[in-house]
């Protein structure tokens, strides 16, 4: 689905969709989800949670909270995005707090805190474009690696599979896969040079 930030028709339509959700229209709720799920995952939840399953769960919790509080939403000119992004940030923090080692997890998260989500649709569009560029650079770096390293990294990070599933697909033991992944990440880190 095209980004809601780049689609002028969506921007004009959003207020009507929100009104329909308030009136109980589930199809309108589906529309909002499809419009904002991708940007919320890419710009807010994955940078804070990493694990794809945790990020998708937090995404669902974000929309549940948003739909329940929608009557209190007031558009201040930037549409639904800033409000949704703030909810998503809180849900990401909730995930960390709920984990067994919540205190240590929160400290590390705060120490490595990703930048705050973009406030306006224009900023979000720019951030999504930048994220796409970064993803293309990552894929380029992966293409220069040994095929087995590239496969291990794609399965574990780009497809989001667990280590057991990755080991099964590569037909290796779990411990062997862990070593393979370590070598692959180190190789990638040598090849990866983030832009300043």
């Amino acid at each position: 689905m095209p980004s809601p930030f780049a689609d002028p028709i969506w921007r004009a339509e959003e207020a009507r969709v929100v009104a329909r959700v308030r009136a109980g229209d589930r199809l309108a709720g589906e529309q909002l989800y499809r419009a904002y799920a991708g940007p919320l995952l890419r710009l807010v939840l994955r940078p804070r949670l990493g694990d794809p399953a945790a990020a998708e769960d937090a995404l669902a919790e974000t929309f549940i909270a948003a739909f329940r509080a929608l009557d209190g939403f007031e558009d201040r000119g930037a549409g639904l995005w800033p409000w949704l992004a703030r909810i998503a940030v809180h849900k990401a923090m909730d995930v960390h707090r709920a984990r067994a080692r919540a205190a240590r997890g929160c400290e590390r998260l705060e120490a490595q805190a990703p930048p705050p989500p973009p406030e306006t649709p224009a900023e979000a569009l720019e951030a999504l474009d930048e994220a796409e560029l970064q993803a293309a650079r990552v894929r380029a770096a992966l293409s220069g690696l040994h095929a087995r390293y590239r496969e291990a990294l794609e399965l574990r990070f780009l497809q989001g599979l667990g280590r057991e599933e990755c080991a099964r697909r590569l037909a290796v033991k779990l411990g062997t896969f862990d070593v393979l992944l370590l070598r692959a990440v180190r190789a990638f880190a040598r090849a990866w040079e983030p832009e300043e």
Partner: peptide, 12 residues
């Protein structure tokens, strides 16, 4: 840094 880049590159 490498891990963050890999995670961020996953299709949203």
């Amino acid at each position: 840094g490498a891990l963050a880049a890999l995670r961020a590159a996953a299709p949203a």
